[in-house]
Nucleic acid binder design. Structure first.
Lengths: 335, 335
DNA sequence: TCAGTACTCTTAATCGATTTCGAGTTTACT
DNA sequence: AGTAAACTCGAAATCGATTAAGAGTACTGA
């Protein structure tokens, strides 16, 4: 409520002096600074962020674009963990977070970001092909993308290639050769990398993958996984191990197996992806790749803030964050 | 980038006229309005939210305070769903969301909210006893709390009393008389209501509850539930049915039962609380009370926006949102 | 003693909008 | 025709900060 004007009056100095005193400029005497700071404290002075932003074009506010098709990006385990980590890191550095949206199509994402004057934007969990997202990414605003990389733009990416490789090697090491994979939406970079790595790793291991072993599912969609699991089991030569899009979708598969009275892992082995806490509590404990949501969010925030504060010297990194194999009990040797 | 000044120049009118034209004031001719709007479109004009906020003290920005002790409020299923619903509703009405925090203690929540000039604040998932939260709630800022009610302040509350009552009646109807309850943190209103309702309902049903049947656990804490479940089973006269703090924590209990080779529900019945999607996919499907996160978030947003836009006429409602019993397969008649 | 520095502080412009008040023009009515 | 009412529009103040440029003092050294 109290503005610099009141402090100035109380101290008998000009507003300019107050501003400089509070910003600890060199051309104000220590004595005056002390006086001003004291008055500011007494009056409960709070800087007015708009006035400051208006003049400086800096808001210490970061835009967050986390909008999936269903408008439920926040309820998405993986992304909510990434966002939480991003938030903690950003706040430690004095930045706040504001959600970017398209205001019922009355503004594009970029326009909204400019309207709110955010210093930078982190993007995840969106359709990266959409024109609006592309416009935002290619604007002059500092932008970091998560799990998708644009040319010449920094990105933080969960290392799905190595992750899938480890997972495949893991089940292979148990003797599995008939490995099926129900994957997520095909247009995403995440899926492409995982599927590509799945094929490549098995090829390196000398295992042939029948076309019908690879099914196009959907992330976080247990029902679809239920159906696709049944399809896989109905094959003349069914797999001995099934990999799922993610830990949550995996539940659908588990239910399909239970309905057929197949025991996990005695009759069939399964694995997920994500490393959700819940998956680790299931019985049997799910073999999976834990994605390091903590590091991903942290790196994204650090990278974005670095771009904002040091636009000249920032390296436009493409950081790859390794996952971690969580062995679990859902995989054993095939019969 | 383009400001009103440029539009004014292009149209040969004053900045004041541009402002009034864009805000559709009555004292500007239709002709001029058209001209101004056209120029605004052509120049890609975007209003400057800071300048506007500076003058009007309105930001169309809502503060969100969702900070639990572990700084992981966003990863909390229940709250992330509520927040998502709140976000969708607020955005539909033209409001944006900014997170409130205490900036590493350099500002209180209230100060932060003022600094960012939010029009109102929604509070959930915090320690409502903390001085900072109380300060915020009792300020002149419009505030809505979720799952906790302060005197004279609007709140949206999941109806835990009726919910627990229904749940108890449900298991009672199967014949259970030895019903244990592992509840969450005792200092929260949610827990108090649930525990109170648990006792009252059973009393009404004429069932006595041994003290040792009610254990103090913790929300979202499967490990603790694992331990407490074992304690309950070790009692000389163990319960035939156990209620858990929430669906997630329930997993710990399930594991404890499995470790003792107790079948659910044949040997013992269990129930959760929340209605998480995952719980409904478990085998056996979990009996639980589904909290209507969608409505809770929606009501909270509507209430808050109403307070902001109609400060005089708003009724300070305390909305209670009923839950819904999800029967599940985890409860059956005791042996 | 006087110019040159160093130090401290103020004046005033500025960021981009909103809004009050008044001025000028047109229309209406007697 | 003359006065009042109705329309349009603009000048200028204002919101609360930042910042360049300059003014006034005091001190230094020749």
């Amino acid at each position: 409520m109290a503005s610099m004007k009141e402090i100035a009056r109380q101290c008998g100095v000009s507003v300019a002096t107050v501003s400089k005193a509070l910003n600890d400029q060199h051309d104000i005497s220590e004595e005056t600074k002390k006086k001003v700071r004291k008055a500011a404290r007494e009056l409960g002075y709070l800087p007015n962020s708009f006035a400051r932003a208006l003049k400086t074009n800096r808001t210490f506010n970061l835009g967050v674009l986390f909008v999936d098709e269903a408008m439920s990006g926040l309820t998405h385990d993986y992304f909510s963990h990434v966002l939480n980590s991003f938030k903690v890191t950003a706040e430690e550095q004095g930045y706040d977070l504001t959600f970017i949206n398209s205001r019922k199509r009355r503004m594009t994402y970029l326009e909204h970001a400019r309207y709110r004057g955010v210093d930078g934007v982190v993007i995840a969990c969106v359709n990266f092909d959409s024109a609006e997202v592309v416009e935002l990414v290619h604007s002059d605003l500092p932008v970091v993308t998560i799990d998708h990389s644009f040319n010449d733009k920094p990105a933080v990416i969960s290392d799905n290639i190595t992750g899938m490789k480890e997972l495949v090697n893991y089940v292979y090491s148990f003797g599995h050769r008939k490995i099926a994979y129900i994957h997520g939406e095909e247009h995403t970079a995440v899926t492409k990398n995982r599927v590509g790595s799945f094929y490549r790793t098995l090829k390196e291991l000398g295992v042939e993958v029948p076309e019908e072993y690879v099914r196009s599912g959907s992330y976080r969609n247990p029902d679809l996984c239920y159906r696709l699991t049944n399809e896989l089991l109905d094959l003349p030569d069914p797999p001995t191990c099934i990999l799922y899009p993610d830990d949550f979708a995996c539940i659908g598969g588990i239910n399909a197996l239970k309905d057929r009275n197949l025991r996990i892992p005695e009759d069939i082995s399964i694995a997920g992806y994500d490393g959700l806490e819940a998956g680790q509590l299931l019985d049997p404990k799910l073999a999976t790749i834990e994605q390091d949501t903590n590091l991903i969010g942290k790196y994204a925030a650090e990278q974005l803030i670095d771009m904002i504060e040091h636009p000249k010297t920032t390296l436009f990194d493409r950081v790859s964050v390794p996952g971690r194999l969580l062995p679990g009990k859902s995989v054993t040797s095939p019969k």
